[in-house]
């Protein structure tokens, strides 16, 4: 059984049209290692059942793609988005997050 050929999202390079002049912040949210992730476990079991015997664990998370007004200072943006992730996008009690700003 081969892996399904899923369409890939377009890469974020300065040249792509829909990204023109836009700054993007990406926020990755995942459960802390100590928190059980039943969805990830189920996905893992399904994948293993499909023959992906090399997969040992799956942790499911959330991904936010945030558009930023052009001209913003990337360092300031990183600070602000980190704040937003802390307050809103992630629940620090159960989740970790990572912010990546792409100018």
């Amino acid at each position: 059984m081969t892996a399904p050929n899923l369409p890939r999202p377009p890469a974020f390079t300065a040249g792509t049209i829909y990204n023109k002049g836009l700054m993007k912040a990406r926020v990755y949210v995942s459960f802390k290692d100590t928190v059980l992730d039943p969805q990830g476990k189920t996905v893992c079991a399904a994948l293993q059942g499909l023959g992906y015997e090399e997969i040992t664990d799956v942790r499911q998370g959330k991904y936010f793609e945030i558009s930023i007004r052009p001209g913003a200072d990337p360092r300031r943006v990183e600070q602000r988005i980190t704040e937003a992730a802390q307050d809103v996008l992630a629940n620090p009690v159960i989740e970790d997050f990572r912010v990546v700003v792409e100018p």
Binding site: L36, P38, Q39, N91, I94
Partner: peptide
């Protein structure tokens, strides 16, 4: 109440989904 910090902990997906 847990989200706004008035109570500790969190409520996540039921174990049996």
């Amino acid at each position: 109440l847990t989200e706004c910090g008035l109570l500790p902990g969190a409520l996540i997906r039921n174990r049996n989904l």
